[in-house]
């Protein structure tokens, strides 16, 4: 396929998962976003090395792929903690007290949005509407929604994620 020196950054499991997506599509670069999300699922984020390897696997330039990676909110080009805490800052959660919830989470974790705790356990990110507005204010930790979340729930909810 391509030069193994670049490809072998990726595991066989990652390559297999990417190839399944490629099979649904008319050409290989069309799988760019799927591939970035797959690698991120395995590694938590997309490093320069991973990016170059994915680009080579899909037959596109790393610069092109980076322009795609940096466009999307859910693709991380910097390392993140073991758990990503996303706090909705859109309008329904805003009306239901989302800003003071965010403040409480910041204080609890001791970090600002965009930062990771020193022990590498949590990364805190603001996020757009999670589509669970009947449960506002909501947060999403990894792939789990929590809401409606009272400020007093923060410690217990986050504590469940080691």
């Amino acid at each position: 396929m391509s030069e193994p020196a670049f490809i072998d950054v990726l595991s066989q499991a990652e390559i297999d998962a990417i190839e399944i997506e490629v099979a649904h599509l008319p050409d290989r670069p069309s799988a760019a976003i799927d591939a970035l999300l797959i690698v991120q699922k395995h590694r938590g984020w997309v490093s320069d090395e991973s990016l170059a390897a994915i680009a080579r696997l899909l037959g596109m330039s790393a610069a092109d792929l980076d322009s795609i990676a940096t466009f999307y909110n859910l693709i991380y080009r910097k390392p993140v903690g073991r758990h990503v805490v996303m706090v909705c800052d859109s309008v329904s959660c805003y009306v239901m007290g989302g800003e003071s919830l965010m403040m409480r989470i910041r204080r609890h974790l001791g970090i600002e949005p965009g930062e990771t705790t020193e022990d590498g356990r949590y990364t805190l990110l603001p996020c757009v509407c999670l589509g669970a507005c009947d449960r506002a204010p909501v947060i999403m930790v990894d792939d789990q929604l929590a809401g409606p979340l009272a400020e007093s729930d923060v410690e217990d909810v986050l504590g469940a994620f080691e």
């Binding site: 329904s92 509407c129 589509g131 507005c133």
Partner: peptide
């Protein structure tokens, strides 16, 4: 791609 803030019907 239900991303219109305040919308949660398609989910």
């Amino acid at each position: 791609d239900e991303m219109e803030p305040g919308t949660f019907k398609d989910r």
